[in-house]
Design a protein around this nucleic acid. Structure first.
Lengths: 345, 345
DNA sequence: TTGTATGCGTTATCAT
DNA sequence: ATGATAACGCATACAA
């Protein structure tokens, strides 16, 4: 056991306990706890002396003990998919921002786009007694999510489903993709290629449907030869362009299902001596921070990761407070930069 | 208090305690604990029945209680500067990778390049009973770090300092910058501009010294007019180029103190109709994942964030095991891509 | 080798 | 309104 000495010698290396505060203030531990949590009314007098003692000793409650004792830990678990993702990284930042002023702290774990791993993450988070869990997209089944929500508040992004104790925050990928495609059409493009995202992601298929819908409503034919498979990573964008070029099909614009692939596509085009937007127009999706500094700056669909993170965290806070969360998903909008132009030929 | 019922009904929502295991196996709780931690020798027989009971009940130890009881929590705190940084994100991934097989999990908190905030982070991590702390660079004083290391193993990157219980993992920024500059010189450049990093970062000033050293050893004069201030962000790279161009000083190459500023610089050059590398050669520093897909792909100094994260985590693991960590910082090397060419004029 | 008792810092229950 | 006291789930001296 660690030495227990050093009662009132101010910060013995951060081990000032609630009990010490109680002693210093001449009250019981329960009273201190009550003041800390606002659990019950206490006399002004005692409150004063307790507050003093807290300040004097530099007491800071121990969240671990708090969690053990059955109370809240003031922490919410966040399952991201990879800790170094440009998109989810921004979302995490939004979560941090919203949680902090409320006194909560996030606990980040990575699921690596793997349902089994995500399950383990949930276990880890639960064992750490988090008060709630935010799941950024992921591969967990709606079923599983619903079940988790029975014992713990859950907020999930990238889906729409309803369940008690669960709030889903979806983004209109379909509409976003339609906007992007329509933008190209309005510029005069008639042959628009599409680089698809990982088919395992629901948002990827939604984006593809948006692309098709825009084509249809413009009376343009959908040519399967003009859609190349991709995996949401830069390299797959590059290979997609190569595949597209190999078909020798004519196209004057490319819509990539995300910015990362658009980057890869830009490089592929460059390698073949094709200029953006002079020869080929290019649109992405997500508006990653980096896209504003791409060459040329990339036109894309704004997918406000930071706002989404913030909203998710706010919904969680509401859930925790017991108030009904009123979340409004942000609407997609196109951000026009310099990667698109009317078709040359 | 929560209901205590449901003893052996397997997973009542994840509340199988060590005590239940003990009962089911017909041994005492201490024995179970000992088996779990390898604290003492136990008979094969009991071990067998305990292992069975653990598997049967699906028991998973509660790290919160573990931490409270004074033992390890099998978690290490990681102070990053911003949760969405491309560079530190990669480092965090390396940490995750190295910690996971050892059964440890990281706890990420962001210091936002602010010493006071970092101090608070340390408090938070300590109150959560992490077994050790990894600090990714940051603004804490060496002094403070040393003091923290007295009560907790600390690994810090981006510095060199020695203290008991502390291992520092530095990177040779000076040499890296010298390599980059020398690369330009070897291509024939004589007028090389430099975009400096945030002067508050020690690595930024080291990189600048490396640049000067390379100039000197080549007998080239150092022209203060050719170094533009920057803040390590894309936008400052852009303004730096504009400032450089405004001086009307002649230069045929730019060395930016990091890839993010190099990106911004590339855009600035593009806006002025200057082509990379035909008109101006460009080198960065860090080799961010994105730089391989820049247009043109950026030549840069490899700064292996993931390896650094992994090494830091391994050093922490060694510290925790009580073995002397033998860390070898990775050496900088230049990665030649397509953003450099011999000077045109 | 194994069990018993106690403590970790806090909250919650039950008195008063 | 306030104070004992018992959990929370586990680890660890100490005894056997």
């Amino acid at each position: 056991m660690r030495r227990k000495a050093a009662v009132a010698q101010g910060r013995d290396a951060g081990t000032v306990t609630l009990e010490m505060v109680a002693e210093a203030a001449g009250v019981s531990a329960s009273t201190v706890s009550r003041i800390l949590n606002g659990t019950a009314a206490v006399s002004q007098l005692k409150r004063q002396s307790v507050d003093d003692a807290i300040a004097r000793l530099g007491f800071v409650p121990n969240p671990v003990a708090r969690g053990l004792a059955g109370g809240r830990t003031l922490s919410v678990g966040v399952i991201t998919q990879s800790i170094d993702s440009p998109f989810y990284g921004t979302a995490m930042r939004g979560i941090e921002e919203a949680l902090d002023p409320a006194g909560y702290s996030p606990l980040f774990v990575s699921g690596h786009w793997n349902a089994a791993e995500e399950s383990r993450c949930i276990d880890v988070l639960r064992s750490r007694r988090v008060d709630g869990i935010i799941v950024l997209t992921g591969r967990l089944s709606d079923q599983a999510l619903r079940s988790y929500a029975k014992s713990l508040p859950v907020v999930v992004t990238g889906r729409s489903l309803k369940a008690p104790g669960l709030v889903a925050l979806n983004f209109d990928n379909f509409e976003g993709a339609r906007l992007a495609t329509r933008h190209l059409i309005e510029l005069g493009h008639r042959h628009i290629a599409f680089i698809a995202g990982d088919p395992l992601h629901p948002d990827a298929t939604q984006r593809q449907r948006g692309y098709q819908a825009a084509l249809e409503e413009a009376g343009l034919s959908y040519d399967p030869q003009l859609v190349a498979p991709g995996l949401y990573q830069e390299d797959s964008g590059l290979s997609a362009v190569e595949a597209l070029l190999r078909t020798r099909r004519r196209f004057t614009a490319i819509f990539a299902a995300n910015d990362q692939m658009a980057r890869g596509a830009a490089l592929g085009l460059h390698r073949r001596g094709l200029r953006v937007p002079t020869d080929i127009s290019l649109v992405g999706f997500d508006d990653l921070p980096a896209s504003r500094y791409a060459l040329p700056p990339l036109s894309t669909v704004r997918h406000p990761a930071q706002d989404i993170g913030r909203l998710a965290a706010q919904a969680m806070l509401d859930l925790l407070r017991g108030v009904k969360p009123a979340v409004q998903s942000p609407a997609p909008e196109i951000v026009v930069r310099e990667s698109c132009a009317p078709p040359a030929r």
